[in-house]
Simulated scan of single mutants.
Amino acid sequence: MKSLPDRTAAGLMLAALAALWVLPAQAVQVVRVGAAHFPPYTIRPENGADTGLLPELVEALNHSQSDYRFELVPTSIPRRFGDFKEGRTDMAIFENPDWGWKDIPHTTVDMGLEDAEIFVAQKEPGRQQNYFADLKGKRLALYSGYHYEFANFNADPKYLAETYNATLTYSHDSNLLMVLRGRADIALVTRSYLFDYLLRNEKVRDELLVSQRIDQIYHHYAILSPKAPITGEAFGKLLQGLRDNGQMLKIFDPYKIAVVPVPRP
């Protein structure tokens, strides 16, 4: 029969082993990532469908390490700022500091990803690239909440409607259909979305004139809250790991989103 000291020592050892077994699970930090409908990056997250590039990126981040668990929190383009400021989300991804974040405390992480906003019109006899040079007098179809460079990043719907004769929707598909049906002269869409749209709608490929003019290059950043459980430096290292193992290229290259060099710290 074991003496009391022996039983005590054995009990302490078991407790220590149990603590070691439990600690890794307790140490996982949950990082809440805002998911706003922004195809092809995020597609209707409020419906619970894990489709789009953001869910793919989050899955890759979660599989690449065990210190953090990234979780998607549905939000919207207009609501994402309030959710971030009020602590419902820790991070916004595929953002740019110029898109309304300047007065909100945050840390910025360069994601090393580039997309573009381009102009699309209906093909007509004699219509050439110079059609896109001047937007005056043309009916524009824009995505509500987006910040466009031609409008000095002013996303106010009233300003866009009055200054640029713009109709604003929450669907790139709707905007392209407006162009195809003659209800708008020009739609602005992201290059990645247009590429995906034409793959899904090959019959209209020859009906659309795509601009060589680019409204803006989307250089994507992650916006982190000062209270986020992960630092900008740590998140940057996780992204670099995905770049090094080829996951970033695998996720984004099919959509013609450029994976570009990021200066190492």
Rank of each mutant, 00 (worst) to 15 (best):
G100D: 09
G232K: 03
N96E: 09
L180E: 11
P261M: 01
R243S: 01
E202V: 04
A9F: 11
P24L: 08
M111T: 00
A151N: 14
P40W: 08
K136W: 08
Q129L: 00
K138W: 11
Q29H: 08
Q29R: 13
S174T: 09
K227N: 15
V31H: 08
K123L: 01
K203D: 07
D206Y: 03
L188Y: 00
P78F: 12
G137P: 04
V259R: 01
V73E: 01
L249M: 14
D110W: 00
S76H: 05
N96D: 07
L188A: 06
P5N: 12
R80G: 02
H172L: 13
L209S: 01
K102H: 12
V28K: 15
Q26P: 07
F119T: 02
I186E: 00
P265V: 02
D173F: 15
E117C: 03
H172K: 04
E149P: 15
I93Q: 05
N152R: 12
R88Y: 06
E71C: 09
A187N: 07
V210K: 00
L176F: 06
P226G: 04
Q216F: 15
K237A: 10
I251L: 14
S66G: 15
L238H: 12
L224Q: 04
G112H: 00
G182T: 08
I77Y: 13
F235N: 01
L176M: 12
D215C: 01
F70L: 06
H106G: 09
D103T: 03
H147Q: 12
H172I: 05
S192Y: 00
E71R: 13
S211D: 02
A10V: 08
L140W: 04
G82F: 14
L188W: 03
V210F: 01
I223T: 14
L194S: 02
P97Y: 01
I251K: 01
V73S: 06
L17I: 10
S3I: 06
V58H: 01
G246D: 13
T231Q: 05
A116E: 14
V73D: 04
